[in-house]
Design a protein around this nucleic acid. Structure first.
Length: 106
DNA sequence: CCGTTGACCCTTC
DNA sequence: AGAAGGGCCAACG
């Protein structure tokens, strides 16, 4: 069995985020069996794959990431708006409403 | 192999 | 209530 990089794992998880939903780095880190959210961000930063909706990956509290490699947080916000996500402030969204939780009761 | 970096989060002063 | 620092894990040089 070939050793898969964490990016492969993260990419798979992020790809599973449904449209109109968002996930935090901390949650994704937990999903990937990791203990730190930085690794999640690091994986994206080094590999901005268009197949990975890294736009749906935000910070805790619903705040967008400041360093979005694909054009900044405003570009990320734009993409999320296209997903149907309503923003509260300049770079904040309703995390309580759009938080993607994989196994939270059917 | 050791040191540095990194799109973060939490605890403490 | 606000600000500062440490911590954790993985890849790159």
């Amino acid at each position: 069995m070939k050793k898969k990089s964490i990016f492969e794992k993260i990419r798979k998880i992020v790809s599973r985020i449904p449209k109109g939903k968002v996930a935090t780095y901390g949650d994704i880190a937990t999903m990937a069996n990791l203990k730190d959210a930085r690794i999640v961000g690091w994986a994206m930063r080094g590999n901005q794959d268009p197949k990975v909706p890294c736009q749906r990956v935000i910070q805790k509290g619903g705040f967008l990431a400041f360093s979005y490699s694909l054009g900044g947080w405003q570009e990320q916000r734009h993409r999320l708006e296209l997903d149907g996500v309503s923003f509260i402030g300049e770079r904040r969204l309703d995390l309580e409403k759009y938080r993607w939780q994989p196994v939270r009761r059917a």
